[in-house]
């Protein structure tokens, strides 16, 4: 079959291509620029030691952000990850009394289960993910307080093998950094190169069309929240291993840092577009900014919040502008 008709113009407009590049790689470019500026401005910035510090401190947010990227691409949001993170820390420390396996499995099982329940509610009742996971946030914070005697108890990690998961280092980088890298690669393959990943994009892009194209919408949505819950649980457990204790006062507002990193990385909160490379760039960018602020010394670390808030606002506005430009072209 062939048609003797001229094809429509196939070359994308220049503006469109530029806007796509900004969309996909904006965070990476800003990250590179920031690192460059930091290296020029501060002698102690571009050192292997500082790089390792940034990597280690960013790794926990990064792990959660991987799950969050899946959720946001599917058109949802998960506000419960901060609470999951803390709850998992407490559960891991508690579980470490019974060995490394219990220390890992207990938080994963609980956080995974809660993620699964949230996913089922979102997928089956059609309630807004924002509300469902907000309830999850509150509920898990309550659960954490209940487990830890109203936050009064701090559980110490009592298993050396488990503590090593958070603290042992290899080539200057601790284990969580390698785990983050592994999860990033795995996640990227899952997202880009499997039917599941493509379904996530399709649902976020156009849920109705995805259903018509045979995507099992409810199942994919459920799984996405399960993944997010599991990863938040894992991050919490690893953090407990690093600190040798489950600390109950951490994690307030962590979900917002994670969402900010994902959005800065170019994933659209409206769903359907984005990716893990951008998310990693977003997480690292926030880490680098934090490090730079520490370098300046005279600035408090709160300054980082100002910068990331401003950055987030800037990014969403730029995304809107790009979106409109693409519409018009």
């Amino acid at each position: 079959m062939s048609v003797a008709v001229e094809a429509p113009p196939a070359t994308p407009a220049k503006g469109e291509r530029a806007s796509q590049i900004v969309q996909h790689h904006g965070a990476l470019m800003v990250l590179a620029a920031t690192v460059l500026v930091g290296a020029i401005a501060f002698d102690s910035f571009a050192t292997p030691q500082n790089a390792a510090n940034i990597a280690v401190s960013s790794s926990f947010v990064a792990i959660i952000a991987i799950g969050m990227t899946f959720v946001i691409i599917s058109g949802g949001i998960d506000l419960s990850v901060g609470s999951s993170f803390v709850l998992a820390g407490v559960l891991a420390a508690y579980g470490s009394r019974y060995g490394v396996l219990a220390a890992l499995l207990l938080p994963l099982a609980v956080c995974g289960l809660i993620g699964l329940v949230q996913g089922l509610i979102v997928a089956r009742t059609g309630m807004a993910p924002f509300i469902v996971t907000l309830a999850g946030l509150l509920g898990m914070r309550g659960l954490m307080l209940a487990v830890s005697g109203e936050g009064a108890n701090t559980y110490l990690v009592e298993d050396d093998a488990f503590a090593a998961l958070g603290q042992a280092s290899f080539l200057g980088l601790t284990v969580p950094v390698y785990i983050t890298l592994g999860l990033f690669l795995l996640g990227a393959i899952l997202l880009q190169r499997t039917g599941f990943g493509q379904s996530v994009y399709a649902i976020g892009g156009n849920e109705e069309a995805a259903a018509l194209m045979g995507v099992p919408v409810a199942r994919v949505k459920t799984l996405v929240y399960l993944v997010s819950g599991l990863l938040a649980g894992l991050a919490g457990a690893l953090n407990a291993a690093r600190l040798s204790s489950g600390v109950t006062i951490l994690g307030v507002g962590l979900e917002l840092d994670v969402i900010a990193a994902v959005v800065i990385g170019g994933t659209l909160l409206t769903g359907g577009a984005g990716g893990l490379t951008g998310t990693m760039a977003g997480v690292l960018l926030l880490g680098v900014i934090q490090s730079l602020i520490n370098q300046v010394g005279t600035l408090t670390s709160s300054f980082q919040q100002v910068v990331s808030g401003a950055f987030l606002a800037l990014v969403v506005v730029v995304q809107r502008v790009l979106h409109r430009a693409q519409r018009l072209s």
Partner: peptide, 19 residues
């Protein structure tokens, strides 16, 4: 700018607390 309310005010939540 046509930004979703939840995102716009999320940016403010983070930034203004920092400020």
């Amino acid at each position: 700018a046509g930004v979703q309310p939840i995102v716009a005010t999320l940016a403010l939540l983070v930034g203004i607390r920092g400020l």
